[in-house]
Design a protein around this nucleic acid. Structure first.
Lengths: 280, 280
DNA sequence: GTCCATTTGTGCGAATTCTCACAACAAGAT
DNA sequence: ATCTTGTTGTGAGAATTCGCACAAATGGAC
């Protein structure tokens, strides 16, 4: 049995489609199709039903995928072990962080890290989707709440508060009872800053919903309404002015997350220290 | 990271040499060398020291091999699961048994199994070395003592006794105090039948040591001395005559061993039943 | 309805990988 | 001393595999 065939089959089982599996493996979708077919042939067992527009696992395929799944975990553990045994300082480090944190707090200071340690190549991915450290989609991650996955080490390295911001002109000319608001889309209704702003907005109108904080900030700058923005973002921008409201301010903690296997790697430690400095 | 590269590296780590790893994988030794080199290149990590006539794992290599080893176990678990999900009766079944049991009790009756179930292809390996059911070197095994490995199901399906046999002529012409004996080599001094015979032989001479029971039987037939043979082997041969001695006879239990994962497979059940009949 | 994005399937040329044959060398047996 | 057996290493041709370009089909957006 060819292990690479198994790898491709597991990717298909995990991703659901040939194309998605191919993307996750960085190969052509045809290759995935061929390797799955090869695996079926070598096992003399039908693993997938080829439906017109989709691949669906057979019962046998589901059982085999479940049994074989630990191989993927072990393979990633190997990759982490390899990364961990690189004793020198240098190499590729991937950081995953919420886009706003990445753009405002991390990216502008990367030049300093680069000067101190030219051997380190940073890959910074600003994604809402939390990258999996277990699957080694990132070596370090910034999260806004403590992760619970096993094998991960989290440390609280910062805290920031939100405030409402609008353009100076908008705040001067608009009476509070006529305020309009800019919010995340409704899938984010449960995050603290959204709930906080919604409570304050009460029945007043929400004129824009965007899942991108930068878009909200841009809209607020043009005088479209008030947006709940992190202070580190709003205070630095002269085109935005804070509108203080009463009550307890809302804030989020910032957690730095690293996999246990990579904790002691010199390069990872250095980058982790750098990120802490960025948040200080 | 290519999983097949890992597979080849693990085979090398397990077997110790390129050639042995190549044999276990049914490929050319050059292939193993290249895949290990490819793995090293893709990880940027030296895994082996190439010494003049041997490959030796580096410290990194040992650590990686240890971490990755579970992948091999899982791969074999997949193969067993595949075997187990073959619902029809038929296919290849490998039986491992001590040579004497295989030759005398199993092999002659295989024709009956073949007649009843033409779809089943049996591979019978008579080896002293106990084949690994975990590594799927065999689907069913006969052992003379209860195995302790985890995941294996053992059932006692038989019992046979040993007796001393010599040629009829030898027994007629030789007085007991002049008996000569035929034994296993000294690596087998601890097995019960050997201890039993040695105690009876006391100071009398051992004229032949062989690790093959068939050789011992052949020597006994020619009148070279007495050999401790299973009764099922000695009684059926007119050229051998039993020499009874006092005391409690020595015997061995026969255990039928199957992996838990294959227990319920129809084909395996049928073959297991057949083997039980052979021993009854 | 039309357009766009996404999915799987096919044919072909290019790149890669594998096996085979042979070589060099060491260790042990005869 | 010679022969056999078992290592690893090298080069070349054959076999395999891969990716690309294109096609067909479906579902959703507008």
């Amino acid at each position: 049995m060819d292990w690479t065939d198994l790898q491709h089959f597991l990717a298909l089982a995990r991703e659901g489609t040939l194309s998605a599996a191919a993307r996750s493996l960085n190969v052509d979708h045809v290759t995935v199709a061929r390797r799955v077919a090869a695996l079926e042939a070598s096992l003399s067992l039908r693993l997938v039903d080829r439906r017109p527009r989709s691949y669906e696992l057979t019962e046998d395929g589901k059982r085999i995928a479940k049994i074989a799944a630990p191989m993927t975990d072990t393979a990633f553990a190997v990759e982490r072990a390899v990364q961990a045994s690189k004793s020198g300082i240098g190499g590729d480090i991937t950081i995953s962080a919420p886009p706003s944190l990445a753009n405002v707090l991390i990216a502008p200071k990367l030049i300093r890290l680069r000067q101190q340690h030219p051997g380190i190549r940073i890959k910074l991915i600003g994604e809402k989707r939390t990258a999996s450290l277990n699957r080694r989609e990132a070596d370090l991650a910034l999260r806004l709440s403590r992760p619970s996955e096993p094998g991960l080490i989290a440390r609280k390295i910062g805290y920031f508060e939100f405030a409402l911001y609008g353009s100076p002109d908008y705040l001067k000319t608009t009476p509070p009872h006529a305020f309009a608001f800019i919010a995340y889309d409704s899938s984010m209704d449960d995050v603290p800053q959204q709930r906080w702003m919604m409570r304050f907005a009460a029945s007043r109108e929400i004129v824009l919903r965007s899942n991108d904080l930068e878009n909200q900030a841009a809209a607020a700058r043009t005088g479209m309404g008030l947006a709940a923005l992190p202070k580190f973002l709003g205070e630095a921008d002269p085109r935005l002015e804070r509108h203080d409201i009463g009550g307890r301010p809302v804030g989020r903690e910032v957690w730095l997350v690293v996999h246990r296997d990579l904790r002691r790697t010199p390069t990872v430690r250095i980058v982790a220290g750098f990120i802490e400095d960025c948040l200080a």
